[in-house]
Design a protein around this nucleic acid. Sequence first.
DNA 1: GGTAACTGGGTTTTT
DNA 2: CCCAGTTACC
Length: 682
Amino acid sequence: MHGSAGALLACKHMFPTPAWDEGLDEAQLAVASHGAGPLVVVAGAGTGKTRALVSRVASLIQRGTAPERILLLTFTRRAADEMLSRATNLVALRSDRRPWGGTFHAVAHRYVAAYAVPLGLPTGFSVIDPGEAGDLMELMRGDYDLGGTAVRSPRSATLVDIYSRCINTGHRLHEVLEVDYPWCKPHLDAMAELFGAYTARKHQAALLDFDDLLLYWRALLSEEDLGRHVAEMFDYVLVDEYQDVNSLQVDIVRLLAPKGRGLTVVGDEAQAIYGFRGADFHHLRELVLDFPDASMITLQRNFRSRQGILDVANTVRPNGDGVGLRLFSERGRGVKPSLVHCHDASAEAAAVVERVLEAHERATPLREQAVLLRAAHHSDLIEVELTARKVPYRKYGGLRFLEAAHVKDFVMTARLLDNPHDEIAWYRLLRLHQDIGPARARALVGTALATPDVLGDWPQLVAAAPAAARSALAGTLDKMVEARSLPAPGRRAETVVAAIRPLLVGRYPDAAVRLRDLERLAAAAAKAPDLSSWLAELTLDPPESTGDFAGPPHLDEDYLIISTIHSAKGLEWSAVHVPHVVDGFIPIDMALGTADGLEEERRLFYVAVTRARDELYLYVPLRMPYHRRGRDDRHGFALQSRFLEEEVISALDVVEQPVPRLRVPVGPVPAKISVDLSSLWA
DNA sequence: GGTAACTGGGTTTTT
DNA sequence: CCCAGTTACC
């Protein structure tokens, strides 16, 4: 079934060249034509690892593997979709016979939904995001001595982070607190109790958080017979970005590919940027050690960037870890990247926009350029400047569409149709009504959960509500009953929007805009097979930019990309602009405390730099506001980033951005000017 | 006891 | 922009 590389070469002389190996270099070809033994590919940035993976999938199919017996796990759904459609194009497959692919979480969801019954889960379970997990923690933490402000106690978002870290790393709570949250140590016992109760309460409400999806998938795979059956559904498992997996994901991979058979992982330790989420790049090394028969292929020919950019990248690249990989360009020297010194943050914003427009003049479209930032709000001033100069842009990362209050209102209300046990959804929906605050909502949630079929029997819930809220609540519930009776996802979603419309109109001054968002969302839902799985997928893979639901972009539409470095992973642009290359921003101040944190910041900088194909600009403002936002606009001197070591700077062309000077326009001067205040005291 | 409206202080990265 | 804390009103 698995032809060797030799047999493959022989075939090439007899048949027209198969499309999948066209233009591959030796190392990429070795990846594509590798057999079934475990394979570790160490791929530096821009070395064509996507091509190699795509070709491998195509090659496996051509060598006789059934497409549906291949599983491709990637970091984002977009990456999976892109790779799978490229691979299937190479071998011209029927669309119903495609390989499996997606993020760990998305694939987990499919399995967990399909095997809900043996896993002991209710079939109507809902998937909640970390924000909603925080809502549930918030509801509970008061009962576990973690509320109030008498003692400094962790916020609910922090509690979710800690909980999640325990699960994703497999470390015990006290270890996690010791290493990552030492200031929370006094709350150890309270947290242990809270976390136990949180797990139970989620289960009761038929809610699965992101971590649960992985936990249940692992549980399924660990089960003696069923697990083996599920794992045996795949002959090949390919995992991209393996440096960013956590130990739970490692377990899943190991269970899917016992002894590494059919396993391919691709990664680069120098691009590990998800340590804060429990990822550990050592997993990549460990795989090589654990499977002595693993083959290792290193890709270091860079097809993306000019050598000038790689000179910077090679000096920034952390040398302690990794394999001492150095990147060599296949595309010539190019222009030397610039380090632009600016007077202050607003001069920097002007300098960025100026260079964006210059590159645009030189025929680099806006969408071939990106501004990459450490944190989403670092783009404030640049956005102001872009707006003032009418440069269109789209922003990725940071505040998400799904976090917008009205979208959550809609999603959670819609979820209640299939899962009436969802107490956070009830809580949110009830709070949306006038005269129902935290306390009454809490009581009403109790009533709702105690009523066997609340939606069928809604007058009971209305009767328990305060008189002032009854008619509104009756209206909401009545519409929801109607929505529940409609099977078509589009109509169902529309009716949910209708149910909450009066509530939103009362709550948000800009309700009209928000309702339009929801109508678009409902229209998108119409294309899904059913509403509840569509909602789960929306939660797992939310639209990344605010523009994503504005309909398909025009072909000739051009806009600059603004993105966090994290969201830019795996992407590339002709020109890349990195502002704020200043200590406290890159590296960010929050990460300065630990050596590990600082190393991750360096890798982040490396990722940013290696996104550029032809032009790279780093910007250093010499003065920065003390506070990143808000009323205090005092400035202090900024320290150039500690990552800009001498060796890095020598690979850069240092430019001083002239200080903008205020010019007072001088017109015709009158003969005599006088200032007379005498009338004030007369 | 409970809700709504206002104020002042603070903001990393994401499946 | 989101939060916790305060205050005025039911």
